[in-house]
Nucleic acid binder design. Sequence first.
DNA 1: AGTATAATTCGATTAAACTAGAATTATAGT
DNA 2: ACTATAATTCTAGTTTAATCGAATTATACT
Lengths: 101, 101
Amino acid sequence: MKLENIAHRLAELGHPARLETFRLLVRAGYQGLPVKDIQTHLGIPQSTLSHHLAHLMSAGLISQTREGRVLRCRVEYPAIKEVLDFLMHDCCAGVASPILE
Amino acid sequence: MKLENIAHRLAELGHPARLETFRLLVRAGYQGLPVKDIQTHLGIPQSTLSHHLAHLMSAGLISQTREGRVLRCRVEYPAIKEVLDFLMHDCCAGVASPILE
DNA sequence: AGTATAATTCGATTAAACTAGAATTATAGT
DNA sequence: ACTATAATTCTAGTTTAATCGAATTATACT
């Protein structure tokens, strides 16, 4: 995993609306959430949310599957795991102790 | 720790030059690195790097101490630990297994 | 005092992100 | 076919980030 890709994912998580969305989706687990439900929780316009979801998609942090009229969003766990692995291992190699203390 | 602050830190880490800088500083450990050394590693103009360092400072991710003409930069470990804790616990509460598998 | 080095701040430009209303697409139900 | 709902895409305005040369500040050395 290239540093640029990790930076991209961190940047996409680095917006309050997107981080809140991501947290909601993580808490929703495997079943995920429809876009509408996310919008209800965040209370922002559809077009703005759609734009943020496109950002999270572009970084591979979430996926979407259509179920009739509903688009269901889910966390892409391997993607967030790569980010965590980078921060914990590649990035912090050899100095784990100050992090973990 | 408020979600907005975590988002701010993630956003500041979400730039290749800054993430590379942060990785260098983590690897340098407690002794940190002078700005000059970081600049040599990254190969970008001083003013651009200074701007990125100010960003990392604003998020509390690094600190700087002057030693004569040299400004030494260090990782603020508690700050990055809060980010990791958020991603691992607050954000991923109750669904640790898909992350850890 | 004069010179050199480290690093920031200033200033200006370019590029990208954010926001959201309006229009559009896609699907479901009657 | 018509209507309603879910969601995106279009379009445009505003704001913020990124870049970097030039000027400035701060310190050290001789």
